[in-house]
């Protein structure tokens, strides 16, 4: 399962006064099992990009292929594509519509034409994946739940389609720390235990520092940095210039090096800093 984007461009309202080039020659290779964080400012084209991944938007030029097959090819089954690449929109709780949590989660699998036993199995699995107790919540109205719970129901609705690639557009937006941590832990488990390829749009460098295996930075419709967190956060100047910055731990690391401490130059998580500072402390004989 791999996706290839080659020379993908997208222009909104082509030919009108509102014409706007949202994606400009995007070339990417997304490999199975990656956890990609997609970052950039509002309007940099990342939301447009994610809607291309499951075929909701069609590139104005260029091609996107899934396992070597053009997703806009004549033979491609659009519904099968949307099953393989699950897309969780921003504020997904606003798409809930059924009377019960169970019915809402089964909407996707039903559209896939699965039989009722399989649907039931998937609903239970999806609810487990988002840490919602089936017995307790299945028959409740989604509209009676808290904001964070509603969002998890909405994500379960996508998980029940059992996608190979899960794309999440700012899944933690507007949530409080507890809600945010729950979603991030859940995504982490899907990646580690289930092997799902994750593409997550995020604004928090600190959150993605500990989660992502790869960071793609977009600016003005283009990919301007692409690499492991270590590689990307080493480019402090570039990240500052785009206005995204780097994680606090990475900034601390550089500040300490500037003060003459003997630290590696590429630490970027609090854990790494913790270890490194502790080591220096012990070397100095502190206790």
């Amino acid at each position: 399962m791999s996706m290839t984007l080659s020379h993908v461009c997208h222009t909104y309202s082509q030919g009108s006064a509102f014409e706007h080039l949202a994606l400009n020659d995007i070339n990417l290779e997304i490999r199975e099992g990656e956890f990609i964080a997609l970052v950039g400012h509002t309007g940099c084209g990342k939301s447009t990009l994610v809607q291309h991944l499951n075929g909701l938007l069609k590139p104005t030029s260029g091609t996107i292929s899934l396992d070597g097959e053009d997703i806009h090819g004549e033979k491609t089954d659009r519904r099968a594509l949307r099953q393989k690449v699950g897309l969780v929109f921003q504020y997904p709780e606003y798409q809930l519509f059924e009377e019960t949590v169970e019915k809402d989660i089964s909407f996707g699998p039903k559209n896939l034409g699965l039989d009722s036993r399989e649907i039931d199995r998937r609903v239970r699995q999806a609810m487990e994946d988002v840490h919602l107790d089936y017995e307790k919540y299945a028959n409740r109205s989604p509209f009676d739940l808290s904001g964070g719970q509603m969002r998890r129901v909405a994500i379960a609705g996508i998980l029940a389609m059992e996608p190979k690639v899960l794309v999440l557009d700012e899944p933690t937006a507007g949530l409080d720390p507890r809600g945010r941590d729950r979603i991030l832990t859940m995504v982490k488990h899907l990646h580690e235990d289930r092997g799902t390829t994750i593409i997550m749009v995020s604004h928090s460098m600190d959150d993605i520092a500990t989660l992502a295996t790869r960071i793609i930075v977009m600016s003005e419709g283009k990919v301007c940095l692409d690499g492991t967190p270590r590689e990307v956060f080493a480019q402090r100047e570039k990240m500052d210039e785009i206005g995204l910055g780097i994680p606090e731990a990475a900034r601390l690391c550089q500040a300490l090096r500037a003060k003459g401490l003997d630290l590696p130059d590429d630490l970027f998580t609090p854990e790494e800093l913790h270890g490194a500072i502790l080591r220096l402390w012990k070397e100095k004989g502190g206790c």
Binding site: L56, R79, R82, Q95, F107, G108, N111, I158
Partner: peptide, 16 residues
């Protein structure tokens, strides 16, 4: 705008 968004979200769940 919202209609557009919801429509896309449901299409992502296989709605037709």
């Amino acid at each position: 705008e919202e209609t557009d968004k919801i429509m896309n979200a449901q299409m992502a769940r296989g709605a037709d």
